Amino acid sequence: MSAAAPPQLSGFPPVLAPDARVLLLGSFPGVASLDVGQYYAHPRNQFWRLLGACLEVEALHLMPYEERLRVAVRHRVGIWDVVASCRRQGSLDAAVTEAEVNPLAAYLKVHAPRLECIGFNGGLSWKLGHHLADYGYRVFRLASSSPAAAMYSFEQKLEQWRPLFACRS
C-alpha cells in the first residue's frame, strides 16, 4: 500500500505596492503560515526581526500582522514567494514537489515598475528565481530566516540582509 500524496497547497498573493524598490522572495509558506494565512508566522522564523532591523523599525516583529505589512509597504518593500502552489508534507523546502512558480518577471514589470532589488530568502527561492537578474534586477542570495537555517546566527543573517536595503533610496 502506497502512502497518499502530500496535499496540493496554494501560497499567498504578493504584498507589493507600485513604488516598491525592494522585494523579498521566499520559497513557499510553511505550515504555521498557511494555518493562519500570514507570511512568516512561525514564532522562531526571524524574518520580521530581520526586516525590522534592516528598516530600523524597532519591535516590528511584535506589531500586529497587518501593521507589519503596512510598515513594509511604507518603506517600499514587497513580500512574496517564488512558488505559487506545490505539494509538500511539512514545511521544509526539500519536501516541495510539483512546484508551480509565480509569473514573477511579467507580474513585477506591470505591478512594481520601480523595483530595483530582489532578495531571495533561502536556497529554493534563489534556485527558482535568480534568473530575474536577466531582467535587470539586482539580486541578493540571503541566508534563510527559517529556524531550519540554524547554522547562521541572527547577526550573521542580518549582515547578509542589510546590503539589499540600500536599494530603497
Rank of each mutant, 00 (worst) to 15 (best):
M1E: 12
L9C: 08
S10A: 08
S10E: 05
L16S: 09
P18W: 02
A20E: 03
R21V: 01
L24T: 03
L25R: 00
G26I: 06
S27G: 07
F28I: 06
V31W: 03
A32W: 01
S33Q: 06
L34D: 02
L34C: 03
D35P: 00
Q38C: 01
Y40E: 02
N45I: 03
Q46I: 13
L50Y: 13
L51P: 08
L51S: 07
A53Q: 14
C54G: 11
C54V: 12
V57T: 12
Y65V: 02
E66P: 03
R68Q: 00
R70C: 01
V73E: 02
R74I: 07
H75D: 01
R76I: 00
R76H: 09
R76S: 05
R76N: 01
I79C: 08
D81G: 01
R87W: 06
Q89P: 06
G90C: 06
L92E: 04
L92N: 12
D93V: 08
D93S: 13
T97E: 09
T97F: 08
E100F: 02
L108P: 05
L108I: 08
L108M: 02
V110Y: 08
H111G: 07
H111L: 11
N121H: 13
G122H: 03
L124G: 00
S125W: 04
L128Q: 00
H130P: 04
H131Q: 03
H131F: 12
L132Q: 12
A133P: 07
G136P: 14
Y137S: 11
R138F: 10
R141D: 14
L142V: 15
S146Y: 10
S146T: 11
S146F: 02
P147T: 10
A149Q: 14
Q156V: 15
K157Q: 09
R162A: 13
R162L: 15
R162D: 13
P163E: 09
L164T: 09
A166Y: 10
R168N: 09
